[in-house]
Amino acid sequence: MKLLLLAGTSEARKLAISLADEPRIKVIASLAGVTREPLDLPVPMRKGGFGGRAAFREYLRDQAFDAVVDGTHPFAAKISKRCCEVAREMDLPHLQILRPEWQPEAGDLWTFIADESKAAGHIPQGATVFLATGRQTLHRFGNMTGRKLICRQIDSSEGEFPFEGGEYLIGRPPFSIEEEVELFTRRKVDWLVVKNAGGMLSRSKLVAARQLRIPVLLINRPPVLECARVETAEAALDWVRGLL
Rank of each mutant, 00 (worst) to 15 (best):
A55E: 14
A228G: 00
L41H: 10
E158F: 05
E180Q: 08
Q96L: 13
E234F: 03
K26P: 00
R82W: 09
A55Q: 13
K2W: 07
G146R: 01
E22I: 00
A64Q: 12
S202Q: 07
Q63P: 01
L92M: 08
G71K: 06
A12W: 04
D91V: 12
L4V: 10
A32S: 15
C84V: 10
T145P: 00
D91K: 15
L237A: 05
W191Q: 03
E178T: 13
A235P: 04
T9D: 07
Q96A: 11
L243N: 09
P222D: 09
F50W: 15
G198A: 05
D66A: 13
E37P: 00
G71D: 05
S30M: 08
I219T: 06
N143M: 06
V86P: 01
P100R: 11
L243D: 10
V193D: 08
G134T: 06
M45T: 15
A16H: 04
I28E: 14
A87D: 10
T232A: 12
R46C: 06
G198L: 03
A119E: 11
G134S: 09
G198W: 01
E89M: 01
A20F: 02
V193K: 07
E178V: 08
R172Q: 10
P42A: 13
A16I: 01
E101Y: 00
Q96K: 15
E182M: 08
P215N: 05
E179P: 00
E89A: 03
F112K: 09
E182F: 02
R152L: 01
F163N: 07
L243H: 08
H139V: 10
V194C: 15
Q153K: 12
V194W: 02
R152N: 00
A208D: 03
Q136W: 01
R13G: 07
L109S: 11
F163C: 04
F141Q: 11
F56A: 01
F163H: 05
E180T: 02
W102I: 12
F50G: 12
S117D: 12
H122P: 02
F175R: 00
I79N: 07
I17S: 12
M144H: 10
G49N: 08
E158G: 15
G48R: 09
T72H: 09
G51T: 12
G121K: 11
D108V: 03
A127N: 09
L201D: 13
L244N: 11
A67G: 06
A64D: 10
Q211V: 02
L201Y: 10
A114S: 14
N143I: 02
C83Q: 04
M200L: 14
